Simulated assay, not measured.
Amino acid sequence: MDTTDTTPIIPEPAKRKRFASFRKSLTDFFASLYNINAFIIRFFKEAFLPPYEFKEIIRQCYETGVRSFTLISLTGFIVGLIFTKQSRPSLAEFGATSWLPSLVSIAIMRALAPLVTALIAAGKVGSSIGAELGSMRVTEQIDAMEVSGTNPFKFLVCTRVLATTLTIPILATYTGLISILGGFLNVYVNEGTSYRTYIGQVFDPLSFIDFTAALIKSIVFGFTIGIVGCYQGYNSSSGTEGVGKAANGAVVTAMFLIFIEEITIVQITSWFR
């Protein structure tokens, strides 16, 4: 019986190279984690201390909210219409189409309205913030602000994060109402349900916890979109390539964190029901 060991022998230099690569990756990970935490802590230190940039905050709220109004309206209406249309056949099998308004309201107000709004904002607003700040960083406009005595972090970062944190809950509420209106159109065409009856059935199963959880999720999502977009753009490098990476990183990272936060908040909320 042949007992020869055929396991390939890894040269010692190759092992050291792999270990060095792994150590560098681990070091970079913890360094990035430290930088992110320091960035968030700096925001909370400077956001609520004078001087306050109220005009810039209002301008950023306009950029975040009003300029997203058309897209949010169209998306919210379609979500409510399609969700109602797709849910009807399943309920019709059990003769429970009268439950459709309640199902629509629970699904939209508890989950879809904040989540859909946050995902749209992450793609539109988050990428815009990342690209704008990234462009200012690579063209040294931020450095010029620091030299001139202006605090670029307060003017550029704090205002945008506060704007998204304030605006996303408003947009999410509006999305929920427009989605419910889209659901009403489908219910009215198929069942002939009056608007008063439909609205009564929509708000009947909702509780204070549902509205509170939706509001908390919207605030958290808005803060996440703003802080991620600002971090990616404020710390970008490598010229124009860095601007693209900042915009892409803002969208991908924000969406990933939004899903994690959605799962976490839903789990916490379920403990109070």
Rank of each mutant, 00 (worst) to 15 (best):
R42S: 09
N248D: 09
R23V: 13
A213C: 13
T173N: 06
I78T: 14
L81Q: 10
D5M: 06
F203R: 07
V187T: 13
V104F: 07
I199D: 03
I36H: 08
G192L: 04
A163V: 12
A213R: 06
M136E: 05
I263V: 13
A131W: 03
L206N: 08
P11A: 15
S73T: 15
P114Q: 04
Q232V: 08
L115P: 01
S127L: 05
Y174M: 15
P114F: 05
F155C: 00
V228P: 03
E191M: 10
K45I: 12
R59W: 06
A172G: 02
L206I: 13
I265A: 02
I9E: 06
E191D: 14
G244F: 06
I225W: 02
G249E: 07
D204M: 13
I180E: 05
V252E: 07
K85V: 08
Q141D: 09
Y34C: 07
G126M: 02
S128N: 11
V147H: 05
A96P: 10
L185S: 12
V189T: 13
F155D: 03
R18A: 15
T6G: 02
I58S: 10
L103D: 01
R23N: 09
Y195H: 09
L49I: 11
V202W: 03
V189Q: 14
S128P: 02
A92Q: 09
A96G: 11
I106T: 05
Y198P: 07
L100G: 12
L162N: 02
P51C: 07
G244W: 06
T64H: 08
E132P: 01
V266I: 09
P114T: 07
I258G: 06
A111K: 02
S21L: 14
K217H: 09
T253D: 00
S105A: 15
S98C: 00
D210Y: 05
S102C: 04
L49W: 03
I72Y: 00
K17S: 14
K245C: 05
S32R: 10
S194R: 05
F259D: 01
T64E: 03
R110S: 06
R16A: 15
F19L: 14
E146V: 08
I170E: 01
T75D: 01
I82G: 04
I260N: 01
L166N: 08
T117M: 07
V228E: 02
R67V: 11
I72V: 09
F184P: 06
R160I: 10
E63F: 12
I129W: 00
E146R: 15
Q201M: 13
F54I: 14
N190A: 11
P11R: 10
V266S: 12
Y174E: 05
F54N: 09
G222F: 02
T197M: 08
N186V: 14
D204T: 12
K15T: 15
L91R: 03
E46Y: 10
G242L: 13
S98T: 13
L133H: 08
P13N: 07
G239Q: 01
P101Y: 03
R196G: 10
T139V: 11
E63P: 08
